[in-house]
Amino acid sequence: MIEVISESRCIECDICVKVCPANVFDKTGGAPVIARQDDCQTCFLCEIYCPTDALYVAEYADGPVAITEAEVEERDLFGSYSRALGWKRGKPGGTQFDPTHRIRVAQV
C-alpha cells in the first residue's frame, strides 16, 4: 500500500488527492498526507500520475510495511513504475511500445 510521500520531491500540486480511486490522501497547507492508508488498494496509479515521482507504493497490499524514504531513494524505486510504463511527469506514454500482443501469441 501507499507508504511514502517525499516532501522534498513533492510540489504540492495535489494531483494524488484528486486521482486516487480510494481517496487515500488529504490536502493540507503543504504536501498532502496519507490520511486513510488502510483504504489503499495498491493499484500504483498515484505513482504514475505524480509529476515529480514523489510517491511510493509498496507491493504488499494486506497492511503497512516499514520502508523509509531513504531506502526508496537508495534503491532507485521512486518513479520506477512510471519508467517501466513510459509515463513521464505524470502524463501517459509508452503504450504504443507495449509488447503484450507477443505474449498473447505465445500464451496459446
Binding site: F44, A58, E59, Y81, A84, P99, T100
Partner: peptide, 20 residues
C-alpha cells in the same frame, strides 16, 4: 525472450517483484 516481453508488457505484474 518471453521473460523480456513479460517484463516490458506487464510492468504492473513485474515492478512489484523487483520491489520485493
Amino acid at each position: 525472450v518471453l521473460q523480456d516481453w513479460l517484463r516490458q508488457g506487464q510492468p504492473n505484474c513485474f515492478v512489484p517483484y523487483s520491489r520485493m
